[in-house]
Write a protein that binds this DNA or RNA. Structure first.
Lengths: 149, 149
DNA sequence: TGACGAACAAGAATAATTATCGTTTACTAG
DNA sequence: CTAGTAAACGATAATTATTCTTGTTCGTCA
């Protein structure tokens, strides 16, 4: 029996946890199910509000801890690598960024070093594009050397 | 006389302020000069620490206010749009994001709707790229209607 | 010179996130 | 099935990041 394209995620939660080396807990299951019903880009607070409807006793800290765990194991993705605080740079020439997913270091990369790039064309939903910012996400040289377990 | 490629920003600060409709104050000038010496992606806190060496009496709030003002007027650029809190999404199919620079709303955009894309090739500095994330930054349809002054 | 408004400093207030710690729960071997 | 062990949980305190409030200062223009 193959997975149905209807559902966002058909595999049972136990299997998903096993795949990612996570213990199966009721809180995690509800957390995951709730997020399946939130197709957008929810904040921890928003997820917490919804989960509380099903587990009124859940702690916000649990939501945070599991979201981080999910991100770490690849079940969830951070929408944008942000670094806990606002980062700015002088608005000079065109460039983009390489972000190390391990140490979060940001390095500039010239636009030409990225190869072919998308044009700012007509976009869905009447969105008026002004510029685009590309984050190349990976592991920096330093963290590659510092092999982790 | 053309700008020298040597310096990050050659135009005198007064002129830059005039161009962006900003009053010239000592704090702003030092703030700007300090940021020229920080080629990376400093956080407000880091900028504050450095500025304090030259203006010990400066307030952190002043740094924040002026950074925001600079961003608003295009003197500085946010490295990635700041949403105030962590945003996550289920790690499903490949897509990117459109971010409204006004209301900060995030909308998904299919990879195919972006046109030609860069390849994950060899990058400078031995960085091992795993994926890339593109933020198209602009104004969403709703904010286009809600014309601001 | 004197009033006016923008900019400022200080610190309180708020929002977001993380850490601590005692208790409970899930997984494993027997 | 049951006990042992490590991981997960909940409550809440602590931290960090950011914004707001208020009173003061400074530069400009009449």
């Amino acid at each position: 029996m193959q997975t149905s394209p209807r559902s966002v995620e058909t595999r049972p939660f136990r299997e998903l946890c096993a795949d990612h080396g996570l213990a199966v807990t009721h809180q995690r299951q509800v957390l995951y199910e709730v997020m399946q019903t939130m197709p957008g880009h929810p904040s921890p607070e928003e997820v917490y509000e919804r989960v509380k409807k099903r587990i009124p006793a859940i702690s916000l800290a649990t939501v945070y801890k599991n979201i981080h765990l999910f991100v770490e194991r690849g079940v969830l993705k951070e929408v944008s690598m942000h670094h806990g605080s606002l980062r700015v740079e002088l608005n000079s020439h065109l460039h983009h960024h390489m972000v190390c997913s391990h140490c979060k270091a940001i390095t500039d990369i010239e636009e030409k070093d990225l190869g072919v790039l998308p044009a700012l064309q007509q976009l869905p939903g009447g969105f008026r594009a002004e510029r685009y910012a590309i984050d190349v996400i990976g592991i920096c040289a330093t963290c590659q050397k510092t092999k982790r377990s």
